[in-house]
Design a protein around this nucleic acid. Structure first.
Length: 877
RNA sequence: GCGAAAGUGGCGGAAUGGUAGACGCGCUGGCCUUAGGAGCCAGUGGGGUAACCCGUGAGAGUUCGAGUCUCUCCUUUCGCACCA
């Protein structure tokens, strides 16, 4: 046993033990309760960041804790290895994405190993391996057969200079990230998955996910966005019919059919076919549509842009009154949602109101609050009331409530063949085509004669060539003749291979299933999936609360419908960890841009109140501005490298700090001083065990058997109580509440109590020994390396990883006296020591005997007494 | 803009509707010395000599009792469909 705590040696020894014993290899064993503990797999960006460390430490603590509780634990790891950053690196360095990605995986795997995570590395997978993505392709073909996958057009960002499709991330202020060219919207053919067919089920099942955070379920429900409303048709006006050569109508959907008499215009998206038709004969309108075409495809930009529009010159008739209504093109109408058209009711919709004010369109109030709280102002009603109420100025419907009016108006429309009640979803079908190289090829062949032909299963996988280097303009796959040119599987004639690849969300929608049988070459899944699924605990960033989790729930249902596994919900319990934040420091350079300094390169400065006001660079002693807290990111240069941390303090300190600094669902603020504090704690723990073990070896005594005269002293009993209370708290905090920070705090208190316990002798030694053993066992899921070593130091030949989680000794927890809080009118006035289980009368008598209590009670009458046994007594006077 | 969450000492945070500030950081004072990236002891929300009073972003409400529940507002963070 070393006197000094040397994390490097301690951690190497523990990791070697686990490796050589295959401690974390999971085997299917139907006789034992399984526990599948899954952390979201990382994108192999190059190095781990603190978010990974936090994520995987949470998972590791739970995996190790459940293992000690006797479960058969699976904790796998893999790589979300396709994606844009590899192409960006290729553009920057000329290295093929495959090489860059695999180098990163090798490095990050070593980093994960150095952190001591209890991972079964035999199940490792990378989504860029053909052995994985061939099953993406196989599953896609099954979806195509069933009509779940289908083709239609979609709108993408187009960089006209590079002649390439851009991701939203690559569009900066409406311009291409590399070229600076104004980005355009372009309509191209794409493949979609019919996730909307599952919308009803995805929504209904949210109620059966008690292990998911409420906020995630609410966010998903809002994303699915079920709304009941009326789909109605505004027939084209006579002149418009003539102009378009059509007898059709403009379809819109509304949840507020009760406001139908307030319609003063109809707005369509710039991408709507009617807009295109009208623009063909109208130069000004064409110019406006063109401006809209240069806007962003992102919802946030559309929704927060200034409301702009232009009349098309086309008109429709009101479906009930026949009134002539103008069709406008408006930039706030999304083509992708609903019909790409909305009815404009300025008086009862904020966006319509802003639009109508700008273009001086009529604002007609047709709903007033049921309580009459709004009144006419002069000749007009007060503008803008969006709630439900009572109808006015609505013909025969005036006087009806909103709810009754919706029913009546829907019925009237239906009888005229101009509308019906409908359920509409905000959710859109999932477009999976990407015009990019580094992804899973879509297994289709385009034949001049046969059309679109699926690649036969026997020819899967369609292997992605790995030697290409993208240059930022277009997809290099499309230029690779040996990939593109093929023969049609149906007729044998020369044909062209599809060069679009799949959205990387496809890869991550079922990797957790594949871990259960990653070596299976004959099928996507085998019976092992039934043993391990569902995932018992999933841990990952809150930023995935909607898309990834929804796609995984959808994909699992599709696999269920393909009879691949009998399961709809993949994740029984979900823990969404918070972000990792750090200070931001910067200087404004000569060019006006901010140059960010890493917090490690500066020394912070505080004002007299201890508030952070700035910093001084350690390099040049010049001052640096403080930019507040922000998530760790490259662009703000405020990341902390886990590697440096592990080298300096060891993996255990890194793990301990990330678990102690905040509860897992909250954001975590980085603090170098805090890290040092956790290192100090481990050193103190080490020293306490070391000093204890150095005592003459005293006989082992079973404390649970001691009673009467041979029982420990009062101080000894107090320490035992502290130890077993800590055990009860840690068990609940890790196992039930997932508040690792308070669990660690309880062990810290225990160690403080051990330090203050001064007694000597055989029994005292045994009491101290028990306390230290419990501390080591309780900490072992969190700081496994040091505990591995300390367990041996406490005289055990076994490894702590194979120990069972202990149970508190009820005898040690028992107390004779408790503190009772006495309040008068809810204010604390006294604390009394009373025997456990003291009655209400007894407590009241003791309270009234207390001088402080008497001061507030005498001269007044006690109206009410609230007694919470063994806790509180409140006198209302 | 829409959806979700969070606001508590100098800082991170703790409190099944029942003692506000556990635990840690920082700071102050002291001790020790095998001078270490040490260790140990004491103190540390504000006001007041004290008894006590005031304090959980702001305002209202429910309750014997509210940091916790309800409503309104403010601020910050996350997501918004091609970043993963």
């Amino acid at each position: 046993m070393q006197e000094r705590y040397e994390p490097v040696a301690v951690e190497r020894a523990a990791q070697q033990y686990w490796d050589s014993h295959g401690s974390f290899e999971a085997r299917e064993d139907s006789s034992r309760a399984k526990y599948y503990c899954l952390s979201m797999f990382p994108y192999p960006s190059g190095r781990l960041h603190m978010g990974h460390v936090r994520n995987y430490t949470i998972g590791d603590v739970l995996a190790r804790f459940m293992r000690m509780q006797g479960h058969n634990v699976l904790q796998p790891m893999g790589w979300d290895a396709f994606g844009l950053p590899a192409e960006n690196a290729a553009i920057a360095n000329g290295v093929p994405p495959a090489t860059w990605t695999r180098d990163n995986i090798a490095y990050m795997r070593q980093q994960l190993r150095s952190l001591g995570f209890a991972i079964d590395w035999k199940r490792e997978l990378a989504t860029c391996d053909p052995s994985y993505y061939r099953w993406n392709q196989w599953l896609f073909l099954r979806m195509l057969e069933r009509g779940i996958a289908f083709k239609r057009t979609g709108i993408v960002n187009w960089d006209p200079a590079d002649q390439t499709v851009l991701a939203n991330e690559q569009v900066i202020d409406g311009r291409g990230w590399r070229t600076g060219a104004l980005v355009e919207k372009r309509e191209i053919p794409m493949y979609y998955l019919r996730i909307t067919d599952y919308a009803e089920e995805l929504l209904a099942a949210l109620d059966q996910l008690p292990g998911w955070p409420e906020r995630v379920r609410v966010m998903q429900a809002n994303w699915l966005g079920r709304s009941e409303g009326v789909e109605l048709a505004f027939p084209f006006a006579e002149d418009t019919r003539a102009l378009l050569g059509s007898n059709g109508a403009l379809k819109v959907f509304t949840t507020r059919a009760d406001t139908l008499f307030g319609v003063s215009f109809v707005a369509i998206s710039a991408e709507h076919p009617l807009a295109t038709a009208a623009a063909a004969a109208n130069g000004t309108l064409a110019a406006f549509v063109e401006v809209c075409r240069h806007g962003s495809t992102m919802e946030v930009d559309v929704a927060s842009a200034e409301k702009r529009g232009m009349a098309t010159g086309l008109h429709v008739s009101h479906p009930l009154t026949g009134e002539r209504i103008a069709i406008w093109v408006a930039n706030y109408v999304l083509m992708a949602y609903g019909e790409g058209a909305v009815m404009g009711v300025p008086a009862h919709d904020e966006r319509d109101f802003a639009f109508a004010q700008r273009y001086e369109l009529p604002i007609r109030t047709v709903i007033i609050p049921a309580d009459g709280s709004r009144e006419r102002v002069g000749a007009r009603w007060q503008a803008q009331y969006s709630d439900y109420g009572v109808l006015v100025d609505s013909g025969e419907y005036s006087g009806l409530s909103s709810a009754a009016a919706i029913d009546a108006i829907a019925a009237a429309l239906e009888s005229k063949g101009l509308g019906r009640k409908r359920v509409r979803w905000r959710l859109r079908d999932w477009g999976i085509s990407r015009q990019r190289y580094w992804g899973c090829p879509i297994p289709l062949i385009h034949c001049a004669r046969c059309g679109e032909v699926p690649v036969p299963d026997a020819q899967l996988p369609v292997v992605l060539p790995e030697n290409l280097v993208p240059d930022g303009s277009g997809n290099p796959l499309a230029r690779l003749a040996e990939f593109v040119n093929c023969s049609c599987p149906r007729c044998g004639e020369p044909a062209r291979r599809e060069t679009d690849t799949m959205d990387t969300f496809v890869d991550s929608s079922w990797y957790f299933l594949r871990y259960t049988c990653a070596d299976q070459q004959q099928s996507a899944l085998d019976q092992r999936a039934r043993y391990w699924m569902p995932v018992d605990q999933y841990i990952g960033g809150i930023e995935h609360a909607i898309l990834h989790l929804l796609y995984s729930r959808f994909w699992t249902r599709v696999m269920r419908d393909l009879a691949l596994l009998p399961l709809a919900e993949p994740f029984a319990n979900l823990l969404t960890q918070g972000m990792v934040l750090n200070q931001i420091y910067f200087r404004v350079g000569a060019d006006g841009r901010r140059q960010f300094l890493n917090p490690a390169e500066v020394e912070p400065r505080f004002d007299a109140d201890g508030v952070r006001i700035g910093a001084v660079s350690l390099k040049d002693d010049a001052s640096v501005e403080y930019g507040g807290l922000g998530t760790m990111s490259k662009s703000k240069n405020n990341g902390v490298d886990p590697q440096t941390l592990v080298e300096k303090y060891g993996a255990d300190t890194a793990r301990l700090f990330t678990m102690f600094a905040a509860p897992p669902e909250q954001s975590l603020e980085w603090s170098d001083e805090g890290v040092q504090g956790q290192f100090r704690f481990l050193r103190r723990l080490w020293k306490a065990v070391y000093e204890h073990a150095a005592e003459d070896s005293l006989p082992q005594i079973d404390l649970r058997a001691l009673a009467g005269e041979s029982a420990p002293s009062e101080a000894g009993r107090a320490l035992r109580r502290t130890a077993h209370q800590a055990l009860a708290k840690v068990t609940s905090d890790i196992g039930r509440r997932r508040t690792f920070n308070t669990a660690i705090a309880a062990v810290m208190e225990l160690l403080n109590a051990v330090g203050q316990y001064q007694e000597r002798g055989e029994i005292a030694h045994a009491v101290r020994h028990e306390a230290l053993e419990l501390a080591v066992l309780m900490l072992s899921p969190i700081v496994p390396h040091i505990c591995h070593s300390l367990w041996h130091a406490l005289g055990h030949a076994t490894a702590v990883i194979d120990e069972r989680w202990p149970e508190p000794d009820p005898q040690a927890l028992a107390q004779a006296m408790v503190e009772l809080v006495v309040q008068v009118n809810g204010k604390l006035r006294a604390r009394l020591k009373l025997p456990v289980g003291a009655s209400r009368e007894c407590a009241l008598e003791a309270a009234l005997a207390d001088s402080a209590v008497r001061r507030f009670v005498t001269g007044k009458s006690v109206l009410k007494v609230i007694h919470v046994p063994d806790r509180l007594l409140n006198l209302v006077v």
